[in-house]
């Protein structure tokens, strides 16, 4: 499978980038989808793109703690204002899509992003 960075992925999936001025050139190979923060903390791996419907500040904390590549908000959810502020400060890219989780994960998988642990 071809290599892909977050930027290309966002373009091909039509994702809206919410965090400006932080790098999104890192390669992304794996993803994890969950709305339960403890579950993400336990089961995500470094470099995952995290697909979630949660929008509050603590998603940034989880992304930093697990060294995730970025966060993708589904169902058209908007990040809370303080979430966005903290994400930029901690350099965690946040994307947004109108699609629901099932659809998003399917498309990511087709593009070569795997859920393998």
């Amino acid at each position: 499978m071809e290599k892909m960075n977050l930027k290309e992925l966002a373009e091909r999936m039509g994702l809206e980038l919410k965090t400006q001025n932080i790098p999104i050139e890192g390669e992304v190979k794996t993803g994890y989808a969950s709305d339960l923060l403890s579950d993400v903390l336990a089961n995500s791996i470094e470099g995952d793109l995290w697909v979630t419907r949660q929008t509050h500040l603590n998603i940034v904390a989880i992304a930093v703690m697990r060294d995730l590549a970025g966060i993708l908000l589904v169902n058209g959810a908007q990040p809370d204002p303080d979430t966005l502020e903290k994400a930029v400060e901690k350099m965690v890219p946040i994307f947004r899509t109108p699609l629901p989780t099932f659809e998003v994960v399917g498309r990511l998988y087709q593009l070569g992003i795997s859920g393998e642990r």
């Binding site: 923060l37 509050h56 500040l57 940034v60 904390a61 930093v64």
Partner: peptide, 9 residues
């Protein structure tokens, strides 16, 4: 408003 996870950082 939410649990203080952020303070860990």
């Amino acid at each position: 408003s939410f649990p203080k996870i952020m303070e860990v950082l």
